[in-house]
Every structure is written in structure tokens, then in C-alpha cells.
Design a binder for these strands. Structure first.
Length: 749
RNA sequence: GGGCUUGUAGCUCAGUUGGUCAGAGCGUUCGGUUUACAUCCGAAAGGUCCCUGGUUCGAGCCCAGGCAGGCCCACCA
């Protein structure tokens, strides 16, 4: 054996052993009880970050432990297409070539994206392999492969049949730049200084930062408790507007804050979420003055066709000319919604979208947790889950992006003359109402060059995967990524009729970061119960977030991102894994100092040298392999220390089992670390090596060998590489039988 | 504004139902290498367990209030 444990040489050797033996392929027919984890799928075109590394370390620990405990352990890998994120990455690439997605029709763009992702997918898979993840690669799934798409589509079809799907106008976060909606989760508020305009509406004055939306006003609102305006409620006021004479009703709504501005609010349901809700409460008309192209619509009268900001300028100018601009506060600071990635401004628009009615689903999802069918660790995260579920509103599942699973709906052009389509013809985009376009173009041309389609809210549609025939155009929206990943346990296991599904569903534990409990965990529980009657997992373990060395959240802009690969290279994968594990006690966020990784690199080397020394001494004492191998503790100890070490080992195994079953990984790892280092290395080896009596020394060595072999087993789930490597050394000496430690049974005590 | 969460040695953190619970790793200081490992061994220094009250025979641990962080959700036009 070498003087040091060289992880750079040994790790690839170990990986090859496992791969050659197909060690982690789960066998349905083994007769063993299944234990299943579905890997939260990382972005297929991304690369491994330290959060992924933590996830692998924890899940691999659980899986290896259960596998050794005699379960048929299945860990299913996969990758996610990460709709919006991947598409924007790809579009950045396109931009470098002077292209954009507006240069391509939908199908061509999708194919290009697929090629791009398939080319990049390899990277993260290789990185996961290098971490020693004992996943079953034969069951690997990608969210955009045929099988996934079919499952997602049939779920959608079932939901349509069950009356859970509807199309509706809704105020969505819309980016003109990216031409798509964003979920609320993708929006952040950013402070900005904007002029606050005080505009006269007859006798009343309204403060607003968006005067151009006044064209879409359908009421004025005041707080019913506000004595200043009490008498106006229910009355209609007339005033001169930029588009001529106008009238608006005054309504009372407690949403209005009397202390802000003048205490009078202009209500623009089409362009503000809160206004939209006020509109619903009071039955107001929705008047859309900003179009999907970012320009004013025909409802904006003379401002039609102007871009939003130009219209704003013009409206302000006109208001000033009319003398109804009371004042302008230029120091007003307020939060505006922006895309959290690019910080581009987000417009609120009313658009037709596909929705899921969540009432029945969320009720079942809530019950599953409240009744303990799904247990969440740490327990306090249940509150997050419960609150989110209780407040969950209908879920808008459509996205105006290409990279995803297309909503399987089709529109008849005869029945829907108002479909607004954009298609590529001879390299150029042509847009318009389909009824107009058909006078100039063939439907086939439109269909094959189709880029996007907007169907009015009341459009008639047919739901099915393939085209119903000539005369139909497809929906171009795709599903929200969470719609497909919410079905991930079902997709990966081949719901509804595969053997895997029948054998391994429901899975045992879902392990993921707490920040997606709302977006992902809740959806999986809902879909699982909806489709199968059972939640997809029995327990949820939520790990904390790995923070940077400075204790702050890692971000590219702060430059404090920890690259797990660097630690892997410098200290070894085992050290990285153990370093991450030893900070996860309560599922809290934790800083990740390099010291920890270093400490476990030293530990790897320590174990290596303990074994090396054992072999050296055994040779000196002429101990035969047979003699060592046949030894069992209790056979022939003369020295109480020998038995004491064995008793301590038994205690160790019990405490490790207990800690792991409670997801207390750090406790378990620490216990092994201290047993091996403090007891076996620092105390016991020193004792044995100084024994004068050769018989006692031999017994000590045999006992030591036995204990080390068994320690390797207990440590294996934590530090699979160094333990498997050393196992190979024991195997070579004929001291153990099983070729792979990973497939060895856990010590029975 | 609503909610969750944290405050223990220089740093990163354990401390599970209140009773050897004042700990670990790293760092610091001192001392060690004739049979493993300097990625080592031994030893030491270092804490008002955020503050103030309370419950208790007894409190990092329970309760109340405060101070200071972190995060999530919602956002006043």
C-alpha cells in the first residue's frame, strides 16, 4: 500500500468497479423490500453546484445505508429541461451568432434547443457520477423524452375530462423582452424612483406613476371609511380626459389606503393585479389598452400603436396642456416588478391562460400532511407547506415559451377566425388574424412555419396529443416546468402500468432543498394523490442551503460561489461529501468552510494508514489470512480492552442506525469519526502495538482487523470511495469475500 | 405588514424529553518523529451559552419582554 491515500488515482478505479458490476441496478425480483428515492432532477444543460453536491451526499448516504441494510434500494436519476432557464441560456448563445428565436419557427427552434441540451446534458451526468452517486442509470429519465411527454399529456387529458382545466383571462407577469409570462416566483421587487403624477378627475385627484394606463380605467376607488370621499361612493363623475369627455363610477373598497397620495385610486383591471381583483369584486369592465406587443391597443384611441413609455410621455404632455396635471412628485421611490434574472421590467397584462382548479387537489394535499401520511423533516417546515397550500390559488400552467411540453390543444381555424398567429415565411415573420392571413397564404404554410399563436379566451379547442386533422392549428404554449416535474415520481417509475411503478411506488423519501417545498413538493403530493390515490412519498427531508464562506447566499455577482469540483479535486469526493454532511443537522442553512473538507481529507488518509499499519504488524507477527479471517470477537480475548472495543463498536452501530433513521446525518458521521480516530487509532492501536505477549498481540490484531472491516461498512455510505478502495485491499489479502463493499451487508449487532 | 428561523470558544457549528452540557473540527500556543499517518502524536490557552425578568431544588435548554442577524410570503396606486 502507498504511504498516502491518493484519491485522484483511487476514485476512478472505484467508479469503474461499480459500473462494471452494475452494482446499483435495482432488481424487482430480489424478494427484498424496496427502498426508493427519486433524485430531484437537475437542469439538463446546467452544471453541478454545491447544492447538488449536498443533495447527492445525503441521498447517496440514505440509499447506500438501506442497500446494506438489506433493502432493494432504488435511486432513480434524471434531468429536467428547466424550461425558461434553459431557453434563455440558449438564446444568449444565439445572440452571439446574431440570431434570436424570432428568426425561427417553433419546430425548428425546438429541434435546435434539443440539440443544444443533448450536447450539454453529458456534463452534469458525468459530474453526478463522479460524486459516487449510486443511482440506477438504467432507469435514467429526461423530462422531454417521449415517455415523460406521454405521461404529462395523459394527465392533462384526464384533468380536462374531470373538469379541472379551464382557460381564463388573468393578469400575468409579462415580459415584452422575452415574450412570455413569468410565474410570481420568478419576479422580484426592485426599488426605483419614478415621477408620481397627481391627475385631476373632475372634482377628485388621483396619484399614479402610470398615467398611460388611465386609458384603461374603469372606475375610481376610495376607502369607504374615508370621510373626505364618502359621499362620492356610488356616484358617477364626469371629467375631461385626454381622449375627450369621460365618465367613471366611484366605488368604495377597503383595499384603498386613505393615507397614500390623495386617497383616491384609479382602477385599471387590465393592467394591475390588485385592480383586477377590485374589478372582480365590483363587476368592473376589463379594458386592455396595452397589447401583447408592448404597444397601445385600439382601445387607447389616438395613442394606438405607441409604445408604452412613448404613450406615457404623450399622455403627460396632453394632461399638462389640458391643465389637469395638479403636480408631479419626482422623488417618489417605489418597488417595481422585475425579472429576477435580468432585472428587466415586467408588465402586468391580461392574457388567456390555461389553469388548474386547485381546490380539490390542495385539500387532499393538506390532509396528507396533517394526517401524517407524509411526514416532513424538520417538522417546522410543515408550517410553510400548510400556509402555502391554504392560500394557493388556481394555478396558471401555461408558458409562452418553446422549450417545454406543448399544451396538447388544437384550434380549428374555421371555428376560430380570430386566432392571432405569427409564422415564418421565407425567413420573415408574418403576423395577423388567421382569417385574414388565409386570404393570402395556405394553411399548410402557416402551420409549418408557425411560431406562436394566441387564442382568444373563448376559443374552441380539442385536446389530444396529435393533430385532429386538416384545418387545425396547435396551441403553442408549453406547460410550466413544475407541471411536469410535479409528476416526476410517476414519470420516472412508469405510471400507470409498469412493473417499476407497481413495485416501487410510493417511494420512501423525498430529499430536497427547503426552498422548493412550495413549488415542487406541494405539486408532487397533489398530482400523486390525484392520479394514484397515494402521496408519492412517505417522508420529506428538507436540507438547508449551503451558504458561501462569508456566510452569505452564494451568487455570481458577489463572486462568492463555491465550486464543488475544486474541493473534489483538491481533497477528494469523500472529503467533500463528509464536509457537507457534517453541517446539516437541523436542515438549516449553513456556511461551508474549507476547513471541514480538509479535516475529512485527513480522515481518509488516517483510515488508510490504520489499515496499512495493521497489515504491517500482521506480517511481522506471521498472522495468516485464514487465522485473521476466521476470528470472531469473543473467541479468545484475554485482554478486556479487546472486548471493550467490540462493545463500543456495537454501540456505535446502534447509534448510527438511530441517527440516520432520524435524518441526523451529522451525528452519525461524527460518531464514526470519533470511534475510528480516537478509540481505534489513538488508543487501541497504540495499546496493541505495545503488547509484549505475542499471543495477546495476535488477538489484538485479529480483533482490530475485524473492527476495521466492520467500520468500513458503517462508514461506507458516508465516504464510499476510500472505504471501497480499502475493502479492495482486504479482498486482495483474502480477508473478506464479497467483491464489493457497496453490496455488502451492514454489520449485525 | 404577515410568517419562519438564528444568536454557544477567534471561525464554522453540535448540545435530541431541563440534572457530569459547557463540547467538536479548524485556528492559536507549547512540546514531540528509533514500526503507520506531519494529511501525524501529546498538552494548553480560550466562552457573562445576545440582554432583562420569570418558572424550578436546578435553565444554552422552558415562559415573557427586549436587542441584533438571516430567510420566505405579500406588496400603497
Amino acid at each position: 500500500m502507498d504511504k498516502r491515500y491518493e484519491h485522484k488515482i483511487k476514485e476512478p478505479e472505484v467508479l469503474k468497479k461499480w459500473a462494471d458490476a452494475e452494482a446499483f441496478k435495482a432488481d424487482i425480483d430480489s424478494g427484498k423490500k424496496p427502498y426508493t428515492i427519486i433524485l430531484p432532477p437537475p437542469n439538463a444543460s446546467g452544471k453541478m453546484h454545491v447544492g447538488n453536491a449536498l443533495m447527492i451526499a445525503i441521498e447517496d448516504l440514505l440509499i447506500r445505508w438501506k442497500r446494506m441494510k438489506g433493502y432493494e434500494a432504488l435511486w432513480v436519476p434524471g434531468t429536467d429541461h428547466a424550461g425558461f432557464e434553459s431557453q434563455t441560456t440558449f438564446e444568449r448563445e444565439l445572440k452571439k451568432q446574431g440570431k434570436s428565436r424570432f428568426d425561427y419557427d417553433r419546430d425548428t427552434f425546438y429541434k435546435m434547443m434539443m440539440e443544444f441540451v443533448l450536447n450539454n446534458k453529458n456534463l452534469i451526468e458525468e459530474q453526478f457520477k463522479s460524486m459516487g452517486a449510486s443511482v440506477d442509470w438504467s432507469r435514467y429519465t429526461f423530462t422531454l423524452e417521449e415517455r415523460s411527454i406521454n405521461t404529462v399529456i395523459s394527465t392533462f387529458e384526464k384533468m380536462v375530462k374531470d373538469g379541472l382545466i379551464y382557460r381564463s383571462d388573468y393578469v400575468v407577469n409579462y415580459s415584452f423582452k422575452y415574450g412570455t409570462t413569468f410565474s410570481d416566483a420568478e419576479i422580484v421587487m426592485k426599488e426605483r424612483t419614478d415621477p408620481l403624477y397627481y391627475i385631476k378627475y373632475g372634482p377628485l385627484t388621483v396619484a399614479t406613476v402610470r398615467p398611460e394606463t388611465k386609458l384603461g380605467d374603469t372606475a375610481l376607488a376610495v376607502n369607504p371609511a374615508d370621510l373626505r370621499y364618502k359621499d362620492y361612493i356610488g356616484k358617477e363623475i364626469s371629467f375631461d380626459d385626454v381622449t375627450g369627455k369621460n365618465k367613471l363610477k366611484v366605488i368604495g373598497d377597503s383595499y384603498v389606503d386613505p393615507a397614500f397620495g390623495t386617497g383616491v385610486l384609479k382602477v385599471t383591471p387590465a393592467h394591475d393585479k390588485n385592480d383586477y381583483e377590485i374589478g372582480i369584486r365590483h363587476g368592473l369592465e376589463v379594458k386592455q389598452v396595452i397589447g401583447i406587443d408592448g404597444k397601445m391597443t385600439s382601445l387607447a384611441g389616438k395613442y394606438e400603436g405607441m409604445k408604452v413609455l412613448d404613450a406615457r410621455k404623450q399622455v403627460v404632455e396632453d394632461l399638462e396642456k389640458m391643465g389637469v396635471m395638479e403636480k408631479i412628485d419626482t422623488t417618489y421611490v417605489h418597488p417595481v416588478p422585475v425579472d429576477y434574472r435580468s432585472e428587466d421590467y415586467i408588465e402586468q397584462l391580461v392574457l388567456p391562460n390555461w389553469f388548474i382548479k386547485v381546490d380539490s387537489l390542495k385539500k387532499a394535499g393538506l390532509e396528507a400532511v396533517q394526517k401524517g401520511h407524509v411526514k416532513i423533516f424538520p417538522k417546522w417546515q410543515e408550517i410553510t407547506y400548510t400556509r402555502w397550500m391554504e392560500n394557493m390559488r388556481d394555478w396558471a400552467i401555461s408558458r409562452q415559451i418553446v422549450w417545454g411540453i406543448r399544451v396538447p390543444a388544437w384550434y380549428s381555424v374555421d371555428e376560430n377566425p380570430n386566432l392571432f398567429v405569427t409564422f415564418i415565411k421565407g425567413g420573415k415573420a408574418v403576423s395577423g388574424k388567421v382569417s385574414h392571413l388565409l386570404s393570402k397564404y395556405e394553411l399548410g404554410e402557416i402551420s409549418s412555419g408557425l411560431q406562436s399563436l394566441f387564442a382568444p379566451n373563448k376559443a374552441k379547442y380539442v385536446v389530444q396529443k396529435d393533430s385532429p386533422g386538416a384545418g387545425f392549428l396547435p396551441e403553442t404554449d408549453t406547460f410550466d416546468t413544475w407541471f411536469s416535474s410535479g409528476q416526476w415520481p410517476l414519470i420516472t417509475l412508469g405510471y400507470p402500468d409498469s412493473r417499476d411503478y407497481k413495485h416501487f411506488y410510493p417511494t420512501d423519501v423525498l430529499e430536497t432543498g427547503w426552498e422548493i417545498i412550495t413549488r415542487w413538493v406541494s405539486r408532487m403530493i397533489m398530482f400523486g394523490i390525484y392520479l394514484t390515490g397515494k402521496p408519492p412519498f412517505k417522508e420529506v427531508y428538507l436540507h438547508g442551503r449551503v451558504m458561501a464562506l462569508d456566510g452569505k447566499k452564494m451568487s455570481k455577482s458577489l463572486g462568492n460561489v463555491i465550486n464543488p469540483e475544486e474541493y473534489q479535486t483538491e481533497f477528494g469526493t469523500d472529503a467533500l461529501r463528509m464536509g457537507l454532511i457534517s453541517g446539516t443537522a437541523n436542515g438549516k442553512d449553513f456556511a461551508f468552510p474549507k476547513d471541514k473538507v480538509l479535516a475529512y481529507r485527513n480522515f481518509s488518509n488516517k483510515i488508510w494508514n490504520m489499515v496499512r499499519f495493521l497489515f504491517l504488524l500482521a506480517e511481522e507477527e506471521n498472522l495468516s489470512s485464514e487465522e485473521m479471517k476466521s476470528y470472531r470477537p469473543g473467541d479468545s480475548e484475554k485482554d478486556s480492552t479487546d472486548l471493550e472495543m467490540y462493545d463500543d463498536f456495537k454501540e456505535l452501530v446502534k447509534s448510527v442506525d438511530k441517527s440516520l433513521s432520524k435524518y441526523r446525518f451529522s451525528d452519525a458521521g461524527d460518531a464514526i469519526y470519533h470511534y475510528m480516530w480516537d478509540k481505534l487509532a489513538s488508543t487501541y492501536i497504540e495499546d496493541v502495538k505495545s503488547r509484549e505477549n505475542p499471543e495477546l498481540k495476535k488477538v489484538g490484531l485479529k480483533n482490530l482487523s475485524y473492527l476495521l472491516i466492520n467500520c468500513l461498512k458503517v462508514l461506507h455510505p458516508f465516504m464510499p470511495f476510500v472505504t471501497e478502495t480499502i475493502w479492495g485491499e482486504f479482498l486482495e489479502k483474502g480477508l473478506v469475500e464479497k467483491p464489493l463493499l457497496a453490496k455488502t451487508e451492514w454489520p449485525g449487532v
